[in-house]
């Protein structure tokens, strides 16, 4: 018996990803027009949420895909902010130009730090990274040149007109947010991304298939540090003021864990959905102060236990919807019937 070769193709796009891609382009173009007509308050809000989105995308990459659950990513967010401050205030670098440089510098710091952090795994890694973040906070709080514990202002922006500053900051945030989503998407579709997914499923099996586990994990850790540094530089560029307690607070990671878990960990859509939800909750409930935070904590617990896939994970599973397909689907073409 002979079988005719079955015609097939490997499909990477979905209908949703094509429609979604087009819609996203229109939406980003709409956002980009904000500085010409929108309220300054809106742009400030957007900037803040863009920073959360970047930070959450990176945490999701690290924890959701890389299996490295860190409670210390605020270390890199704070370093990004302080790198921006030092370059702008003391180095005379244009603060807007300093943003990407700050992110690269943060990534360079993460390289030696990873040597210590990677000594720990699982839950120990989580708390160990938190200790590292505390070391950075306490170190910078002792440096009087950057204002010590009470922090300082970003004086480098003094000569720049307010309208220009607000618009350029907004555009930078928008570009960085889109770029971070694109970066994670591109990374996960690449060979390294495939290796990362294999490591998440089984470290030993992927190692035996020739995946360099250590190098892949280090790469992810460095990219996540870069993204966190970028978010930090942008946040304090918009905020104009930085202090060790604001820059290195564990709340950054706490809110991010909430965003990613609620949205759906291990998906690219998840953090985006999570940030939108977080923005809405913040807008309408943050006036309740401590009870609002109690609610966020409880919600995170319930979702983790009852709905571990999160909001987007549920939708994607239920409706087979995928705006950022990273998997490869085998499409078989039926052989013509005789």
């Amino acid at each position: 018996m002979s079988t005719a070769p079955i015609a097939f193709e490997v499909s990477r796009a979905t209908r949703a990803s094509r429609i979604g891609g087009a819609a996203a382009v229109v939406f980003v173009a709409f956002l980009a027009s904000f500085p010409w007509w929108a309220d300054h308050g809106w742009m400030r809000e957007f900037n803040e949420m863009a920073c959360y989105l970047i930070f959450a995308m990176m945490w999701n990459l690290l924890a959701g895909y890389g299996g490295m659950v860190s409670i210390g990513q605020q270390a890199y967010l704070g370093l990004g902010g302080y790198a921006l401050l030092v370059m702008g205030n003391f180095g005379g670098v244009n603060p807007f130009v300093a943003v990407p440089i700050a992110a690269v510098l943060t990534m360079l710091v993460a390289l030696p730090v990873s040597k210590i952090a990677f000594r720990l795994q699982g839950g120990y890694f989580a708390i160990g990274t938190w200790v590292i973040a505390e070391v950075f906070r306490l170190s910078i709080a002792n440096v009087s040149a950057v204002g010590g514990g009470s922090g300082t202002s970003l004086t480098a922006l003094r000569g720049i007109e307010k309208a220009t500053r607000v618009s350029v900051t907004f555009w930078l945030c928008l570009v960085a947010a889109v770029a971070s989503v694109a970066l994670v998407y591109w990374f996960l579709r690449s060979r390294q991304g495939l290796a990362l997914l294999a490591i998440r499923d089984s470290e030993i099996a992927s190692e035996s298939q020739g995946v360099n586990v250590r190098a892949t994990k280090l790469g992810v850790y460095l990219v996540a540090a870069f993204g966190a540094g970028l978010a930090g530089a942008l946040y304090f560029l918009g905020n104009l003021r930085i202090s060790p307690d604001a820059a290195f607070t564990v709340n950054w990671t706490a809110f991010t864990i909430f965003i990613v878990m609620i949205g759906g960990i291990g998906t690219i859509e998840g953090p985006i959905v999570g940030v939108v939800l977080f923005w809405l909750l913040n807008k309408y409930f943050s006036e309740y102060g401590t009870w609002y935070l109690v609610g966020l904590g409880l919600l995170a617990i319930v979702v983790t236990i009852r709905f571990p896939r999160g909001l987007w994970g549920y939708v994607a599973h239920r409706f087979d919807l995928n705006f950022f397909p990273v998997q490869r689907r085998l499409v078989l073409h039926e052989p013509p019937k005789d």
Binding site: V69, V294, G297, T304
Partner: peptide, 28 residues
């Protein structure tokens, strides 16, 4: 018990959520 397993994430997130709940209830 329901959060234990090979993946450390669920237990970390649940206890971290508990931490936030305890801190804020005590504050209140």
């Amino acid at each position: 018990n329901g959060t234990l397993g090979k993946d450390p994430l669920p237990s970390l997130v649940v206890t971290f959520g508990l931490a936030i709940v305890i801190q804020n209830v005590l504050q209140e």
